[in-house]
């Protein structure tokens, strides 16, 4: 059984301009010890999906529907205070900007201790010992001496390590990482991704990795969910998404990336910009930008259907299977030509 099973999740914000359907019918599951990457551009609803599961959405007027079954319990149905007990203990979260995610007026020792003592009745000394242990696990040099330091005394990469230490301090079953390396330099990103990989191996936590970077997905994911305009476009194992993509949006993302074969050529970007979630297009939400658009796409919402002959590879597109396979093969030769 999956560790987390999200079914038909919807998060609608009531704003002065109308209802923003930030998440509109998203389903996925995360297996124990595996990594699910949620990919999409800004505003695709990938962060809101995870914040909803954690009960961390801000704003007063929100409608949430659907289920998020974590280890047999629907997180969306339990009282707030019960959900709070899951947070930081069984499900942790790290965020994009390590510079602002730690409280500047408390020492990191205090912030790490807080995470321990919120969920366990331990003494300060025990919590401190645990904090040091975790700082060592995330390879922070001289861990013992750094508990009394404040966040501004750490570099960006080191702060993200502190965040990871804090997230894993109670040995959670699930770690949600929201763009954890986006604000970091590429060599620091490599350090953090490597660290997360090793920690996943040691701690056995499942990871939901929210990212816009297909490179990061390729490096780390077991399963991938591609989101477009608050809805899932495609979902499958990483091989499905990179080598047998079945949705024109996924194709567009892969084609947008500059790589060896595009040198001297124009890139093939997706035309236009993502739609407003106040008033999304009818039918398939991708149809105004889709080069393969057909009449049916403008009126009928495509089913998030299983790809024939696959395990659990789904895509929401009206195109026939033959065209999809043909396009997928073309894209593979176009974009991954340098991979031989």
């Amino acid at each position: 059984m999956a560790l987390l099973d999200v079914r038909d999740l919807r998060t609608h914000f009531h704003t002065e301009d109308g209802i923003v359907r930030a998440v509109d019918g998203v389903s996925f599951s995360v297996e124990k010890g595996k990594t699910l990457a949620i990919v999409g551009e800004s505003g695709s609803g990938k962060s809101v999906t995870c914040l909803t599961i954690m009960g961390l959405n801000s704003g007063r007027r929100i409608d949430i529907s659907g289920e998020a079954i974590f280890d047999g319990v629907d997180l969306l149905a339990i009282p707030k205070d019960e959900l709070r007990r899951y947070r930081g203990q069984r499900i942790s979260m790290i965020f994009q900007d390590p510079m602002t995610s730690l409280n500047p007026v408390h020492t990191i020792g205090r912030q790490l201790r807080e995470a321990v003592q919120l969920h366990a009745d331990v003494t300060k000394a025990q919590a401190n010992a645990r904090a040091v242990e975790m700082l060592k696990a995330v390879r922070i040099p001289r861990a013992e001496t750094r508990l009394d330091d404040y966040p501004h005394q750490f570099s960006g990469g080191m702060r993200q390590r502190v965040m990871i230490a804090m997230a894993l301090i109670n040995n959670p079953d699930l770690l949600i990482a929201d763009e954890p390396t986006t604000a970091l330099d590429v060599t620091t990103q490599a350090q953090i991704l490597k660290l997360m990989n090793e920690l996943q191996r040691d701690f056995g936590s499942a990871i939901i990795l929210i990212t816009h970077d297909l490179g990061v997905v390729a490096e780390t994911a077991d399963d991938v969910l591609v989101m477009y305009a608050a809805q899932p476009a495609e979902r499958g194992g990483y091989e499905d998404i990179f080598y047998r993509p079945h949705h024109p949006y996924t194709w567009g993302l892969l084609r947008s990336l500059p790589h060896l074969a595009t040198i001297g050529e124009d890139l093939k970007p997706i035309p236009g910009a993502p739609p407003s979630l106040l008033n999304p297009p009818a039918g398939c939400r991708f149809h105004p930008r889709c080069p393969y658009v057909m009449d049916i796409c403008t009126t009928v919402v495509p089913e998030f259907a299983l790809v024939p002959g696959s395990g659990d590879h789904r895509a929401a597109c009206h195109l026939d299977e033959e065209t999809k396979q043909r396009e997928a093969a073309t894209i593979l030769t176009e974009t991954l030509a340098d991979s031989a």
Partner: peptide, 21 residues
């Protein structure tokens, strides 16, 4: 350190990870 958007190749290589800042 640049992530490669191609899982097989990305996973086959042994990255050179610089230590420190």
């Amino acid at each position: 350190a640049v992530p490669i958007p191609n899982p097989r190749r990305a996973r086959a290589r042994v990255p050179v990870v610089l230590e420190g800042d």
